[in-house]
Design a protein around this nucleic acid. Sequence first.
DNA 1: CATGAATGAGTTTTCATTCAT
DNA 2: GATGAATGAAAACTCATTCAT
Lengths: 206, 206, 206, 206
Amino acid sequence: MSGQRVDAVRNRRRVLEAAFDEHARHGAALGMQDVARRAGVGIGTVYRHFPSRDALIEAIAHPFFERGLLLAQSVREEVAEEDRFAAFARGFARVLADHGVEGHCTWDAPAAEPVRAELRTLISGFVEAGKRKRTLRRDLTAEDAFALLWTIAALVEAADEPIWQRHLDLVLDSLRGKPPRNLLAPAIDRAQWDRFVRSTRGSWAE
Amino acid sequence: MSGQRVDAVRNRRRVLEAAFDEHARHGAALGMQDVARRAGVGIGTVYRHFPSRDALIEAIAHPFFERGLLLAQSVREEVAEEDRFAAFARGFARVLADHGVEGHCTWDAPAAEPVRAELRTLISGFVEAGKRKRTLRRDLTAEDAFALLWTIAALVEAADEPIWQRHLDLVLDSLRGKPPRNLLAPAIDRAQWDRFVRSTRGSWAE
Amino acid sequence: MSGQRVDAVRNRRRVLEAAFDEHARHGAALGMQDVARRAGVGIGTVYRHFPSRDALIEAIAHPFFERGLLLAQSVREEVAEEDRFAAFARGFARVLADHGVEGHCTWDAPAAEPVRAELRTLISGFVEAGKRKRTLRRDLTAEDAFALLWTIAALVEAADEPIWQRHLDLVLDSLRGKPPRNLLAPAIDRAQWDRFVRSTRGSWAE
Amino acid sequence: MSGQRVDAVRNRRRVLEAAFDEHARHGAALGMQDVARRAGVGIGTVYRHFPSRDALIEAIAHPFFERGLLLAQSVREEVAEEDRFAAFARGFARVLADHGVEGHCTWDAPAAEPVRAELRTLISGFVEAGKRKRTLRRDLTAEDAFALLWTIAALVEAADEPIWQRHLDLVLDSLRGKPPRNLLAPAIDRAQWDRFVRSTRGSWAE
DNA sequence: CATGAATGAGTTTTCATTCAT
DNA sequence: GATGAATGAAAACTCATTCAT
């Protein structure tokens, strides 16, 4: 009986990992059959653990929020007030990239409400701290920061790391409301950008 | 003979409008049957005017590029060098918003290559001019500008006008690389932002 | 009024010719739209002259019978009794090949009953004459001859001329019921045959 | 686990049988929906067992080749050299008739290449043996034999047994290149032939 | 619990036929 | 009479979901 439990738990994890991979590859259009195959289980097993496609996708999104929250907490613990927002933004992009998940789609998963509320509080704190320390423009609001994170998420999902790193550098530096500093990330050249544009084509011409 | 043409033209417009709406609602995954139903015509009529799903989507995307190009040209004619990039970015957002189209999806329609090439040249010119006139950070590259426009497009598609207007104001002002000026667009309040997050839910939980 | 008649008659012929070509190319699966396009008329015009697809195909088959009958009559007039059957069989194959028509399909067009009856009588006569003159086996019946013509039709439709010419030579010579004479048509080599088999593939794997 | 297999196997057979019937009735133009309906299963089940229309048709054709090969092999083992070709031709017609399949359509199924190659070798052997033993005209080539079998296949598909039996008798006897022997199969009478012609009508006027 | 066969509504696309102009 | 736009019933195929074993 508890032996079976062990199997069930292991299967659940397998399915979730497989769903994760498939989601990274095919986005929200992932196929249940494909998930089952990749997990090495029957499709019935997928449905036992996640009663519908949507439930599965929500489950995929969940750890993303956890890591986001963890990130925010560790930023609060370990980063000086003046750098918290930038640190979080960079870490957030990294989480998104590592997840390979359609971030701004899962960002709003219904089940994530509590986590999201806490995240919001933390991020608001980062913004306030930055403004106090004059490392963020004084007129920046928490909502401005959210919108910014949202656009960054969209870019991270779609583009390769050099592109979003550069964008992040540029935008974060600009938001200081002071004369530019040297940007660390190298500029994107024309070929890189073209490759990106071409790569997005698949999304609808498939 | 030309009498029926009138009907055909009207039907074509109906189909295109319906496709437009469906595209706004369901993105590139729009259904041909749905388009036909919304247009109030048989599915055969949809196929008469647009021989395939891709052709229809391309037709949706096309006017967007035309307007984008027109915009860029008129910006070059009528706006002072120092303000061209900002003017274009604002106009671009407006075009996107008016279209109600998944801009960063159709941005790369195969048929749009020539238009896109010309747009690129024009925008590059705006960036150079802005840098020369010191209304854009000196380290800003054309590719930085493209990435920025890309993220703006993503936001415009998804969010209501107050949100993207504010974001635009903030980012464009910040990119000057100088101390902040007063932003014209009002800050977004918490309720507005929450409404936005909630609204995006549909995109995948549908 | 009679001016229009002229137009109508010309259109009818055009449609029929187009239908003919299309039938040669695509067999009984010809498309009405294609016929109209090839004829250079609207599809409505096709339907004015032939009220349905089947009616059109029947109309295609008709001249085939006429030519078949003409052939049989001229064979009776101009060929010595002992050679009539062979002459007809060869001419029949030629008509079929020239028509490029699915002969054993149109062979039985409902409208062709009277023509077919007359043909039957003529062919029966050829068989009788051949047997009398000892150029056909004595036990050959009219029905045997029909069956033979049927199989020849099937081969002519499907295979290239060298193949059916050879087959015709071989079978007609054999039917004499006497020791073989030299066959005029060259033997088919392996490559030719393979090409034929490969070509038939399209019929169902299309 | 293996319990369901029983059902699956039964369903597979049902589908195959239904496909068989439909193929006999409508040829290679059989409809998947019709097959499903006749089999009493959902269309998904048809696709589970045969992933495409072509796969299904190939599955129909396959046993035909197996039986053809088996036949050729047993002919080689058990029939005297002088009679092998005739024996094979008769057996081949029987296989075709039993299958009720469009033989000269499936004859060239892509998957059957190896089987076909072996068949070709065997049949060539029969022809050579027949010529050596003077039971086949000396000028008969393997390709002649193939063409002959092809025409026989066409007739067997279309006509009733008495008709093709008689045709077979007649042609095989004639191919000996010697004076006729008594044919075993009875001659076809006019009524039988007319019935055949009428029956073929459906093929295109359907 | 796990399995995977079965289901059938839904997708895109084609094409014979009708009918308003 | 001629036109060709409109129609919608198929067709082949997919895939989320159910359920018997």
